[in-house]
């Protein structure tokens, strides 16, 4: 049984070809084609998901030892956490803020880098840097640049007269949040800009020429022609960013670890913080976290489709 599925699944194109003559495909159905993908997802993603949900109903001691079932206790405990409310609010603000900023800035960048100018290729390459470097390293790099004693950004801002003396930007939540959002936008820009650039290249040149002939202004052309044609690329950008930014762990973990206390934590970081005191409660947070991202994405998809119907 097992060997059947795996050997059939490992080389789907060939088994498809040998059994084909058209009817073969129908006979085997989707199994050889999507089977391997489903198998990989089930084994590596869904199995641990099951473990995560199960863990959220377990009583687990600090040492990691499983002491038995906890029922809904861990969820109750989680919702009793005094910090939870502010963490969820912060998560929503963080996600919406970072995604909105990313999309707006990326629209501008894509437009800019779609122009023809000397060195376009090279400058586009530079844009990739935050993507090629690991997000965690970029976050740690910024933490280092913002260091109170030796951070180059502190030195620069002091020399430019923006601040009187070096500040501890990441130690105070009111300044740590803007900096972390800046870094989160910074690392999200390459992917988003590239998505939109690719979208722009699907807009046929003739459309613009027609608009020019009609005497439309630059802004009008952009709003009436470019933006609607960019819509599909824009949607991809928003959905992927929503998921990534909501789940974003390395930026915050690399810069503040969610601290002081949980004052700069999003739900994902909070989940990780809980892990050191209660694994069960942390798993409950993961489940809630997942529910939140599903709601966010579903809400966005619904709103965007509704817009489409209106338009």
């Amino acid at each position: 049984m097992s060997s059947n599925v795996t050997s059939g699944g490992r080389r789907p194109p060939r088994s498809g070809r040998s059994g084909t003559r058209r009817s073969g495909l129908g006979r085997l159905g989707p199994l050889p084609w999507i089977g391997p993908a489903v198998l990989l997802i089930v084994v590596v993603v869904l199995w641990p998901v099951y473990e995560m949900v199960r863990t959220s109903f377990l009583k687990i001691s600090v040492s990691g030892f499983v002491r038995g079932w906890a029922g809904l206790d861990k969820y109750r405990q989680l919702f009793d956490e005094p910090d939870l409310g502010s963490v969820i609010t912060a998560t929503v603000v963080w996600t919406v803020g970072v995604v909105a900023l990313t999309m707006v800035i990326s629209l501008g960048l894509a437009q800019l880098f779609n122009q023809r100018f000397p060195g376009r290729r090279l400058t586009r390459w530079a844009l990739i840097a935050p993507w090629a470097a690991s997000v965690l390293m970029t976050a740690i790099g910024f933490k280092w640049m913002l260091d109170r004693t030796a951070g180059v950004l502190n030195t620069l801002m002091t020399d430019l007269g923006i601040v009187d003396s070096p500040e501890d930007w990441l130690g105070d939540p009111s300044t740590a949040w803007p900096w972390m959002m800046f870094v989160a936008v910074f690392v999200s820009l390459p992917f988003t800009t590239y998505t939109l650039l690719a979208g722009l290249q699907t807009v046929p040149g003739e459309v613009y020429e027609a608009a020019r002939v009609d005497g439309a202004g630059v802004w009008q052309t952009y709003r009436r022609i470019t933006l609607p044609l960019l819509r599909p690329a824009f949607l991809v950008g928003v959905v992927i960013n929503l998921i990534n930014v909501f789940n974003s762990f390395p930026v915050i973990w690399g810069m503040t670890r969610g601290g002081p206390d949980s004052d700069t934590a999003t739900t994902t970081v909070f989940m990780y913080q809980l892990k050191s005191s209660d694994i069960g409660e942390s798993a409950a947070m993961s489940v809630v976290n997942f529910a939140l991202v599903v709601v966010m994405v579903a809400a966005f998809l619904k709103v965007s489709r509704w817009n489409q119907e209106e338009a």
């Binding site: 049984m1 097992s2 599925v5 159905g29 989707p30 199994l31 198998l39 089930v42 199995w47």
Partner: peptide, 21 residues
């Protein structure tokens, strides 16, 4: 029915691998 079959086959294969190793 077919969908269920696909999923259950995949699960079964996964389970076999799990126990075998």
């Amino acid at each position: 029915k077919k969908r269920m079959l696909v999923l259950s086959a995949a699960c079964a294969a996964g389970a076999l691998v799990l126990t075998a190793c």
